[in-house]
Design a protein around this nucleic acid. Structure first.
Lengths: 123, 123
DNA sequence: TCGCTGATTCGATGACTGTCGATGCAGCCA
DNA sequence: TGGCTGCATCGACAGTCATCGAATCAGCGA
């Protein structure tokens, strides 16, 4: 749970018709949403901080690492949360965040073999 | 640097300071740029079409697959090109695009183990 | 209960981005 | 050479996003 191994392989198929192997628009839209969540330096670092911690991280430990205001951090964390990349829980005064690795794995799959997602991408 | 199979581990240690394992801002900025290039449904499908073809693809074969105008396709292709995800060459009347897998591999690395990039990109 | 701290939400704003039509450039063919 | 086709670039515009300060909510301790 706090440690996982990811093995991925790039596939370089050579004979599949492009219109057949390509991502369908629905999967592309969902994928783009998740990529968009990581398409910001602050959010990418946030994700990195949370993921590399291996365990849950308190917001109060995250905020001082960045040069933006608290509300901005909160906004970015929400984007990551809505993208399914992290989840959080309030415990007393503090709020803790932890990564959801499945989503990252799904992204890796999308990157390595876009065609593979055609058969099952229902969220 | 260009391996075809990637095996990585998220650091599950309980004692690593998060600020130590996290992506440095420079790497985060570069990563965000590439993610941003994929953070659009049209571009993600474009990338998928080009990557899944396994070979170079003519723009004239790409354009009819999408519901946007030619200039828009051209714009998105340029974004992918500037992100280092694809490259192109004019051959006679037509322009051909092909994928640059190294960049996708680099992204996969970033996704699987953000901390791993410290050894290569730390200032 | 009251005040304090931590985190989120709200509203506003400046900057960026996706899209289009018009235009320009490169190459082919009659 | 002149006309045609394919693709890129330009300029404009509407929509989205990152960011902030102010306000609000949740929980703790005196």
């Amino acid at each position: 749970m706090s440690k996982q191994k990811i093995v991925l392989e790039l596939s370089g198929g050579c004979c599949t018709p492009i219109s057949d192997a390509a991502l369908d628009p629905a999967a592309a839209s969902e994928g783009a949403t998740v990529f968009k969540a990581l398409a910001d330096p602050v959010r990418l670092r946030l994700m990195s901080v949370i993921a590399s911690a291996g365990d849950e991280v308190c917001v109060c430990d995250i905020t001082p690492l960045f040069d933006v205001s608290g509300p901005t951090i909160s906004h970015h964390l929400r984007v990551l949360r809505e993208a399914g990349l992290v989840d959080c829980q309030r415990r007393g005064t503090w709020v803790y965040y932890w990564p959801l690795p499945e989503r990252l794995e799904w992204l890796s799959t999308l990157l390595s073999a876009p065609a593979a997602t055609r058969t099952g991408t229902a969220s």
